[in-house]
Amino acid sequence: MSDPKITAGIDIGSITAKAVVMRDGNILGTRVRFTGYNAKKAGQDVLDGLLSEIGLMPNEVATVVSTGYGRNAVDFADKAITEITCHGAGAWFINPEIRFVIDVGGQDSKVIRLDNNGKVVDFAMNDKCAAGTGRFLEVMARALEMDLEAFGDLSLAGTPAKISSICTVFAESEVVSLIAKGETRENIIAGIHESVASRISAMARRIGIVLPIMMTGGVAKNKGILQAMEKKLGAPIVVSGYAQVNGALGAAILAGRM
């Protein structure tokens, strides 16, 4: 084994694959790419890309942990650990004060309660429904013919339009009819964000919210969602610069404990 110990975490999500490489508790680099149809290749490519970027050889990595829905497809990983445990470990690494993690990814959203040692006490995930996830937002962006990146800032100026449906497909038709009625994009997007925030806050309350809260996952980059979530939960939410790669970060940390 190389010394000091270099570890890697790979998070294969439904939309993007993320990699984080660490050396003795320090982040050496992160990388994100689209997952595509081949999860194993995505995992290999995202790690290889990151290693060459930071000037390391694959054989210098002592331990690899994979996570995310494609975790079992990454056959070169030493261990597969679920994204629940990894997001908990990642958030706690960034800020050990954190007791609650809200992760909104491409196809699922989850809430995780941590104890004083960063151990997962309880969690809940959305089930069989894409409402309240990144995919939901993508569908809505398509309906509004907009770039998802612009969603967050634009919605901050809006007054939330009412989106009552909890189903992605039906909510899309609702959005189409709101457009037809001449509702502004700002208001529609604010309404979409409020609907996502409502679903997630209900899930969070189910397992009991403990402060402080951190939001992770790609959707945490969206300021509109963040603001809507804070309003629903009545509490500030911390977002780190590593939000999108937080699962891979947790995996790299857990690899260091193996």
């Binding site: 829905y69 699922d108 151990k119 995930m125 069989k128």
Partner: peptide, 29 residues
């Protein structure tokens, strides 16, 4: 675990697998 006793259309394997794995990780840690 959300499912159904007979109607397989309500069983999502990867979601359920993640929940069980995460639950067991919590139990083991």
């Amino acid at each position: 675990i959300e499912a159904d006793m007979v109607d397989e259309r309500h069983f999502a394997e990867s979601q359920i697998e993640t929940r069980i794995d995460a639950f067991m990780e919590t139990l083991k840690s």
